[in-house]
Computed example of a mutant assay.
Amino acid sequence: MREAETPVGGSGAALDRPASLSERLASGLLDLITRDGLRRGDPLPSVKELAARFSVTPPTMREALRRLQATDAVELRHGSGVYVGKGVHRTLMPNPNSTVTDYAALALELVEARLVIEPGIAALAAEHRDEAALERLELALETATRAPDDPRPHLNFHRELAMASGNRMLYEVVDSLLVVRNREQRTLRRMIADRRRDYDEHRAILVAVRAGDAAAAESLTRDHLRQLRYTVAPN
């Protein structure tokens, strides 16, 4: 790979332009991770070694790595090296250059997207749950009762519900939505006035999942998200 920037077309050509060097390097690094079977937390070669492998300078390689770090695909640890990040297999990726500021409007779209996806996920969770999944759902419920500064790991109920479905693709979609739209998620949480009701609705979903009642789990999840949608847009 020669180190030369690919020319970018003029106004209106962004969708048709060739990939930049840093984009091609980022893609090559993801291919390397896949080809070598690396997983989250596994170390990558040093920046210098990666630069030599791709025939670019270390600063150019660092730029590509920073691009991947912005999406959690890799993690740069100061004084330690480069590691595979937690977001390397996500199906949706955040845009680190996003300039969107209307998070309330996006929060409504997020709830509507979840209304389409999550009731069916809850039904699958009721059909495929196991003891480990039920335990994590219980921990996620317990998380909601903690103080925000509690140092213990915080589990998200809806993420764990997707994990309990047994469908990796659905889990990745929910995980990606929660990560990519983290600001909108925070907006939603601030809008929830009745925290006890929110907790009780999650508890009812868990009871249905534990009982293996797919219809109830689906219905309760839909009602829960409809209530959340009403909170965001009462009219």
Rank of each mutant, 00 (worst) to 15 (best):
E3Y: 10
P7S: 04
V8T: 08
G9T: 01
G10I: 01
S11I: 10
S11E: 04
G12P: 12
R17P: 00
A19F: 09
A19H: 10
S22K: 10
R24H: 08
S27N: 12
L29W: 05
L29R: 09
L30P: 08
L32C: 06
I33C: 06
T34E: 14
R35E: 03
R35C: 00
R35S: 05
R40G: 11
G41Y: 10
G41L: 05
D42H: 15
P43Y: 05
P45M: 07
P45Y: 02
L50E: 02
L50P: 11
A51I: 05
F54G: 11
V56E: 10
P58I: 01
P59D: 08
M61A: 06
M61H: 05
R62M: 10
E63P: 00
A64P: 12
L65A: 15
L68F: 08
A70C: 04
A73K: 14
L76P: 08
L76R: 08
H78K: 13
H78W: 12
G79C: 11
G79E: 03
S80H: 13
V82D: 02
Y83I: 05
V84S: 10
V84Q: 07
V84E: 04
G85C: 10
L92N: 03
M93H: 07
P96F: 07
N97L: 11
N97E: 02
T99G: 00
Y103T: 14
Y103E: 07
A104W: 09
A107M: 10
E109T: 14
A113K: 08
R114S: 03
R114L: 08
I117L: 15
P119A: 01
G120I: 00
G120Y: 09
A123E: 04
A125N: 04
A125V: 01
A126G: 06
H128C: 05
D130S: 12
E131T: 13
L134F: 03
E135P: 00
R136Q: 12
E138V: 11
L141F: 09
L141V: 09
E142K: 13
T143H: 06
T145P: 02
T145N: 04
T145S: 13
R146D: 05
R146S: 09
D149K: 03
D149Q: 12
D150H: 14
R152E: 01
H154K: 13
F157R: 02
H158P: 02
R159A: 14
E160Y: 03
E160D: 09
L161Y: 01
M163R: 14
A164S: 08
N167T: 10
R168N: 06
Y171N: 01
E172Q: 15
V174Q: 06
V174A: 11
V174D: 02
L177S: 03
V179Q: 06
E184T: 12
Q185I: 13
Q185W: 02
R186T: 07
T187G: 02
R189E: 15
A193F: 04
A193N: 06
R196E: 13
D200I: 07
E201K: 00
H202R: 12
H202E: 08
I205V: 15
A208W: 14
G212L: 09
A214G: 11
A215N: 06
A216W: 07
A217K: 04
L220N: 02
L220S: 06
R222P: 05
L228E: 03
L228I: 12
Y230L: 12
P234Y: 03
P234E: 09
P234C: 04
